Simulated scan of single mutants.
Amino acid sequence: MASLCVFLGLVTLSHAYENVALNKPAYQLHPYNTEEQYDASNGVDGLKTNFSNFGGQCVLSANNKYTATWWVNLTSIYNIYNITIFYRTDNVPWQPTNGYRARFLGFSLYVSNTTDRLDGKLCFKDTNFNLTTIPPIFNTTCLLRGQYVIYYNERKGVGENPIGYDPYAFNELCEVEVFG
């Protein structure tokens, strides 16, 4: 009986997924500034207690840009199962009047073996969320294999985006977990 319990315990452990992005190298295009407070590595530091601008736990990108790109280098090729993103909320209620919702709309996730999203495969593309339905914590199953997970968002220009979208693209990621 004891050997059966040990065997079942090992089977359970072998099917558990781990956050393979935790404390791995990260990069963003168009950083907000060079202060560590907004560094790309904040997106994979494991901290999820302060989702505000000055909390030092979020990645922030520069204003007035039409593309936003952030990636994590998993440092090895992994079989990915699931990706979770904790988006910036400024620690206020996540309701349609929260201006950060409009910045998150339309984003994509790619898995690649290079830092170029076009070399990889699309894991998720937001085409259905709106200001009422976009969640502050996004979770998706992504059964792909790769070394880089790339968050990408783009805008066409002021007045040329779908209704509800912010005119500019942002990386405002407070944590990205990649389970594999």
Results as ranks from 00 to 15, higher is better:
Pro31Glu: 11
Tyr152Ser: 08
Leu131Cys: 05
Thr69Glu: 15
Tyr148Phe: 13
Thr84Phe: 07
Val176Tyr: 09
Asn33Gln: 04
Lys121Ile: 05
Gly157Lys: 08
Arg88Val: 12
Pro93Gln: 14
Gly43Glu: 11
Asn130Leu: 00
Ser108Phe: 00
Asp45Leu: 00
Ala16Phe: 03
Thr127His: 08
Ala21Ile: 09
Asn128Leu: 11
Pro96Ala: 02
Asn33Gly: 07
Gly159Cys: 07
Gly106Ile: 05
Ser3Trp: 11
Asn50Cys: 06
Gly46Val: 01
Val20Arg: 00
Tyr152Ala: 08
Val111Pro: 08
Val158Phe: 13
Leu105Lys: 00
Gly120His: 06
Val20Trp: 00
Cys142Glu: 06
Gly159Lys: 02
Arg155Tyr: 03
Cys58Glu: 15
Ala62Asn: 15
Asn98Cys: 09
Gly99Ser: 04
Ser41Ile: 14
Asp45Met: 08
Phe138Cys: 00
Phe124Pro: 04
Thr49Trp: 03
Ser108Ala: 06
Leu60Gly: 11
Ala2Arg: 15
Gln37Met: 14
Glu177Asn: 14
Asp45Val: 04
Val158Trp: 08
Gly106Ala: 13
Cys123Ile: 06
Tyr100Arg: 15
Gly146Leu: 05
Glu154Val: 01
Ile77Met: 01
Ala26Leu: 05
Leu122Glu: 04
Ile150Asp: 06
Asn42Met: 10
Thr141Leu: 15
Tyr32Pro: 02
Ile150Thr: 10
Val11Ser: 04
Leu10Pro: 09
Gln95Phe: 12
Glu35Leu: 09
Leu131Thr: 01
Asn171Tyr: 01
Thr12Trp: 11
Asn63Gly: 05
Ala26Trp: 10
Trp71Asn: 08
Phe129Ser: 07
Ala68Ser: 10
Tyr32Ile: 02
Lys24His: 11
Glu18Lys: 01
Arg155Pro: 07
His15Ile: 12
Thr84Ser: 15
